[in-house]
């Protein structure tokens, strides 16, 4: 089965925005690839003027939040770094057990790569004068506002990138199940400075699957 991949545009964001952004992107992908009956749930971002849509599946929300928590913890240990999160959809095939081969084989049919550049928030130098502080505060506020607006615009681009990809590439989608497709969210491993890729390589080696990257 052909595995379609989509590299999403990189987003520059601050740690406080990780949750909003990842929720927005991951749930948007899931919404487009959960083709069983869903009752959509509109969600407004906490920090951004963006409304996205969830599938309305509490278990999925929980899973996404847990992964985001793990990613946030990783970011704390590895600040100011580019990182990648991969959401993969796969089918499982049962195989006869044999040497170096697992009983179930994962056949990935779609992968979404979310590229993030997490930056530490800018620090502003202290000033002795209260007026200076006020100005700095105003500037910081203005800068944050400008940056947020730019981030919102970038996220909109990413969302439309998802929409375009999801609609253009759909012949590879397996038959619609009565539940959400098999999937996994890979985040940079906490013990690896190379991100999730080592995890993927390890998994590919273990499964023996011709993983296409």
């Amino acid at each position: 089965m052909n595995c379609e991949t989509c590299q999403l545009k990189e987003l520059e964001l601050e740690p406080t925005e990780i949750r909003d952004v990842l929720r927005c992107i991951l749930h948007t992908i899931f919404f487009h690839r959960t083709l069983s009956l869903v009752r959509p749930k509109d969600v407004d971002c906490d920090f951004l003027e963006i409304t996205y849509v969830q599938c309305g599946l509490p278990e999925l929300e929980k899973e996404v939040d847990e992964k985001i928590d793990q990613f946030t913890a990783w970011v704390e240990k590895h600040p100011n770094r580019r990182s990648q999160i991969c959401l993969s959809f796969f089918d499982e095939k049962h195989r006869h057990p044999g040497w170096f081969v697992n009983k179930t084989e994962r056949i990935y049919w779609e992968q979404w790569f979310i590229n993030l550049h997490i930056m530490s928030p800018k620090r502003y130098s202290k000033s002795n004068s209260s007026k200076g502080l006020t100005n700095i505060g105003a500037n910081a506020l203005e800068e944050t506002s400008t940056r947020r607006a730019a981030l919102e615009s970038s996220i909109n681009e990413v969302l439309f990138q998802i929409i375009n990809f999801a609609n253009e590439k759909k012949d590879h989608i397996p038959a619609i199940p009565d539940r959400i497709f098999n999937h996994e969210i890979m985040i940079p491993s906490s013990d690896s400075v190379f991100g999730w890729n080592t995890d993927v390589i390890r998994r590919v080696l273990n499964s023996g699957h011709p993983y296409s990257l």
Partner: peptide
């Protein structure tokens, strides 16, 4: 295909 499209439509009207 329509199922996917309507999910997109549902999102686009909110964007």
């Amino acid at each position: 295909g329509s199922t996917v499209l309507f999910r997109s439509l549902y999102l686009v009207v909110r964007l």
